[in-house]
Write a protein that binds this DNA or RNA. Structure first.
Length: 269
DNA sequence: CGCCAGGACGCCC
DNA sequence: GGGCGTCATGGC
C-alpha cells in the first residue's frame, strides 16, 4: 500500500480507486458528497466511526484526521485496500464484456461493510430506487442519531416505523430486528458458514429473498462469490451471457458483478 | 400522468 | 417448480 502520514492526515496513492464510483454505486447508501473545493470529498460512517475522505488529484486521496493505526486497522480494510484490484481486473479482462466494464469504471472497490447495516439497508432496497433508499435510511439514522443496532430496534413494530415511509418493507424491518435479537438469526455465525447454509439462514427473515441475501453476503460479509441478481444484472446476463457467467470469475463473481452493474446502468447515460 | 425501482410473498396451476 | 398479481412510496 502506497501511503504516508502528513500532519493529522493519511495520503494514499491508489490507482484502482475512484471515490464516486466506489461510494455512489449502490453498494452503500450513507456516503455524502461534499462540495468543498476539492476534486471531490465524501463524508460517511462505518459502525460508529465517521470519515471525511477526499480525492485531491488523479488517484491521490486524503483520509482527513485519521491516525496511521486507524487507517491500517480500520479504513484500509473497509476500502479493501489489502486486495490487489489490478490483479482482479487482469483476470476479468479474459472476458470481453467484463473487460469493457472494468475499463468503463475501473475505480470501483468492494466496501467491507457491517452485516447488520447491510441486512437492513438491502431489505429497504427491494423494489425501490437508490435515491429513495438513501432517504429512508437517512430518516432511520436521524431518529437514533446513528445507524441503529438491532438492540436499538428491539420491540419495534411496523407501525412504529411509519415515519420512515418505507411502505410494505416496515414489517420486514421489524421482523429482522426480532430475529437478530432473539438469536434466531446469528449474523456472525452466518458470515462464517458455508455459503448455501448462510443463504438459507438469511432467508429465514421475512423480506429476505435471493437478491437481498446475496447482497448481505457480498457487501456485509465479504463473501466475494455471492452474486446478487437484480433487474439490471438480469439484463446483463440475458444480453451478454446467454450461455452462463464465466467459470473463471466465480470466486470473485461479486466484484465482477459490481463492475457490470455500474456499466449497464451508466454506459448510455 | 404512467413507468419504474439493487424484490419478495402468496396464491395459482 | 414456474408464472403472475400485489405490495407503498416517490423519483423521473
Amino acid at each position: 500500500m502506497d501511503y504516508y502520514v502528513k500532519n493529522n492526515d493519511i495520503i494514499l496513492h491508489e490507482k484502482d480507486f475512484d471515490l464516486d464510483e466506489t461510494l455512489d454505486c449502490g453498494q452503500a447508501f450513507r456516503w455524502k458528497r461534499i462540495e468543498s473545493g476539492y476534486r471531490c470529498t465524501y463524508e460517511g460512517n462505518f459502525l460508529n466511526d465517521s470519515l471525511k475522505i477526499s480525492e485531491i488529484s488523479e488517484k491521490t486521496f486524503v483520509f482527513h484526521n485519521v491516525s496511521e493505526e486507524d487507517f491500517l486497522n480500520k479504513w484500509a480494510d473497509y476500502f479493501d485496500l489489502y486486495t490487489d484490484y489490478s490483479e482482479l481486473k487482469r483476470q476479468f479482462s479474459e472476458d470481453k464484456t467484463l473487460s469493457e466494464a472494468c475499463a468503463f469504471a475501473g475505480g470501483i472497490r468492494l466496501l467491507k461493510q457491517n452485516s447488520w447495516e447491510c441486512l437492513i439497508s438491502f431489505i429497504i432496497s427491494q423494489n425501490n430506487n437508490i435515491p429513495r433508499i438513501k432517504g429512508i435510511i437517512e430518516r432511520l439514522c436521524q431518529n437514533y442519531s446513528r445507524f441503529p443496532s438491532a438492540e436499538d430496534m428491539a420491540g419495534i413494530t411496523a407501525d412504529d416505523l411509519s415515519y420512515l415511509r418505507s411502505g410494505f418493507r416496515g414489517k420486514y424491518l421489524s421482523h429482522a430486528a426480532e430475529c437478530v435479537n432473539t438469536g434466531e438469526v446469528n449474523l456472525a455465525e452466518i458470515a462464517a458458514a458455508p455459503i448455501d447454509e448462510a443463504r438459507a439462514a438469511l432467508r429465514k427473515i421475512k423480506g429476505v429473498g435471493p437478491k437481498v441475501a446475496e447482497c448481505v453476503l457480498l457487501f456485509g460479509m465479504y463473501r466475494k462469490e455471492a452474486f446478487p441478481v437484480d433487474v439490471w444484472i438480469k439484463r446483463v446476463l440475458e444480453e451478454y451471457y446467454p450461455d452462463g457467467f464465466p467459470e473463471f470469475a466465480k470466486d470473485n463473481a461479486g466484484i465482477a458483478q459490481q463492475y457490470l452493474f455500474h456499466y449497464i446502468r451508466n454506459k448510455n447515460a
